[in-house]
Design a protein around this nucleic acid. Structure first.
Lengths: 376, 376
DNA sequence: GCGCGTTGTGCAATCGTTAGCATAGATTTT
DNA sequence: AAAATCTATGCTAACGATTGCACAACGCGC
């Protein structure tokens, strides 16, 4: 025999590599089920997927065998054939803002409802690395959900080139992809109306990260509405995207001479507003006694004492659901063919206790003309 | 000809299904590269993976072609052969606690450093559904990182049966798997020492979710240390895992007659402690003037005004890193073969302004015997 | 001048799943 | 009763990547 004749070529490497990096031991496959059932693998596949052509008898035998063996189909192999992975890439913004944590939770749940799983590509501040973009392609994600300003246009181009649909949540679209966001202008106008009707005249805006469309829209919407209503141009105070940034802005506001100091502040994110309130109070100012503070987002922590923030709540669940549906539609039709939409959802006012209320009821649908009843 | 002879069998279904669900169009594959390079697919594979046997000339030609075509290997296909997906399942606890958001961020970054990607299986409160456990198997995750109390023992058994290593972070292991956590007892003792040395005698613990080992360990560690030091048994106040739960606990404490009311409170999580502080202050009590409050976790929001919480900071990055390394070791050796460890990492005290300080320096390494110097 | 060792590539099997087509019996139709 | 039609199943070729082995071409020593 040739026991040792053909073997000694390169026995060392494979022999050493195999034992540890071996494949998962003994998980049931279509093939193994087929063997024990005495049928072909294709029959097992059809039986388990509910193909009507398989006799009830054989199907019963196979499903019994499958559950007994704890069989689970290998989605990766299926993806190879079907061209769909069921994977959705998720790029998450700075999680220090609880808004993104809440978004994450919704995304996981709603994606699961739709039979998809999320591949976490990035979380936190900073731009996404090239390795991340690569993973997006390597794992053949069907689409990508982005809720961060930091998706480089290069990454977007790569998605476009590879026919990966892209949906931005809480951001406007870049070159390629759809977007779902809250109607930031409308929300800002709602808050402006509220503050003006309550009699505030020296307004300020604590701005967000300059790179985010969300922050810009809120700032502009607020200012333009105030201007249209005949009010003075609000003071712009540089903020950011964290409690610390809001706190710093609040300190600067508190340090102003009382005569110039704003009597109402719109912080473009709840987490910022919380920082502003904390700084004002630490400086001995009362909120809403001396200064009214309002925010926007609707994070749950801001709804609690000691903030009880008056804010516009983003319809988070609806936003994520809409985003996923857009994504799935894009997957169905092919990213390039699908129309690229921009969806705006209206937020709802949540009255807290951080801002003075208008004495004469609530102007829930105020128009600029009616906003300043006695501003003549 | 047989133009219409063989065709009309079942033309409707496949013809209708194809156009929309078609595979990703025209992405480069090993095969397509091989064709344009005029070599075999195996040669392309070897060239790109740096096999020394490929001539430098051919390799240069192939790599040039690959970058030009924007080639990315299909990891799913590779997984089929190698038996390793590079995917790690992530089960995340209630994200309303910012601690988990911070953990998420670390996990993504550190996993990427190790060449792994995270498949988000679950986020939020509530037990994980069966569909989630199924996804874990379907996508052939190499291992699973769990930071929630809610992984059912059934899910753990499924992982064990399928040779999927399991690592718990911030939780003790169930039947199967390793665990990494902060040394909760040591941390609780550190805080107990601090409170006792500061002269507090009427202590209280705001407890966590009864189902979590972390909460139990902190509560027990604190109480046993106090008892060993000769102090009175702390008052146990039911808490939970949210600001709201802490707030409710704080309200109950504030409602007690001043003579019985605790003068120091240990809340077993920072988010709870924040709620406690807010409730006490809303009731007119000063923190730390009337009541000292300490927490544990080290979330960044608790370090800011108005809380400036004294707490024990969990070494989050080290915990996640250690967890991932344990997981990778388990993957390497096979889950069942790998030793199942329990790793405890020591937390560090962060002195805020929410608790009265001992007058005589800090007892950073207090032993029970030395904890109550004048407690005779 | 022929065998042998190197070096560089190609071939083919494999991973687990799906789907088009073929086919063996069983049943119906004429 | 032969032919046509079903029904239930098997066979086989993909999907994209990896890898053991075969093999061609080359240079070398005896």
């Amino acid at each position: 025999m040739d026991e040792a004749a053909a073997a000694p070529r390169r026995p060392a490497r494979p022999a050493a590599a195999r034992p540890s990096s071996g494949r998962a031991t003994g998980r049931a496959t279509l093939g193994s089920l087929a063997q024990s059932a005495g049928v072909a693998a294709s029959t097992v596949s059809r039986a388990l997927r509910g193909d009507a052509r398989i006799s009830t008898e054989v199907r019963a035998r196979i499903t019994a065998l499958a559950t007994e063996a704890g069989y689970t189909p290998n989605i990766l192999a299926r993806t190879l054939v079907l061209g769909r992975s069921g994977l959705i890439g998720l790029v998450l913004g700075p999680v220090e803002n609880p808004f993104y944590a809440e978004l994450l939770q919704q995304a996981v749940r709603l994606a699961a409802d739709r039979g998809c799983r999320l591949l976490l590509l990035h979380a936190g501040p900073g731009p996404i690395e090239d390795a991340t973009t690569e993973a997006l392609l390597q794992y053949r994600v069907d689409g990508c959900l982005v809720s961060s300003a930091e998706l480089s246009s290069r990454a977007a181009a790569i998605c476009a080139a590879n026919n990966v649909p892209l949906v931005m949540i809480n951001r406007v679209a870049r070159e390629h992809g759809s977007a779902v966001s809250c109607d930031n202008r409308a929300g800002a106008e709602l808050l402006a109306t509220l503050l003006l009707e309550a009699g505030h005249r020296r307004l300020a805006v604590v701005t967000g990260n300059a790179a985010t469309s969300t922050g810009r829209e809120r700032t502009e919407g607020f200012c333009q509405f105030v201007a249209a209503a005949g009010g003075d141009m609000p003071l712009l105070v540089t903020g950011g995207a964290s409690h610390a940034a809001g706190f710093a802005a609040g300190q600067r506001i508190a340090a102003m001479p009382a005569a110039e100091r704003p009597d109402a502040v719109f912080a473009v994110a709840d987490i910022l507003a919380m920082g502003v309130i904390d700084a004002l109070r630490e400086a001995g100012l009362a909120v809403p006694g001396d200064v009214s503070v309002v925010g926007m987002d609707g994070i749950s922590l801001a709804d609690r004492p000691p903030y009880r923030l008056t804010t516009v709540v983003q319809p988070l669940q609806a936003m994520v659901a809409r985003g996923l549906d857009l994504l799935l539609a894009g997957i169905e039709q092919g990213a390039v063919a699908a129309p690229q939409e921009r969806v705006l959802l209206r937020g709802t006012l949540r009255l807290g206790a951080s801002a003075r209320l208008p004495e004469s009821g609530l102007p829930l649908t105020g128009s600029p003309a009616a906003a300043l009843p006695a501003a003549e």
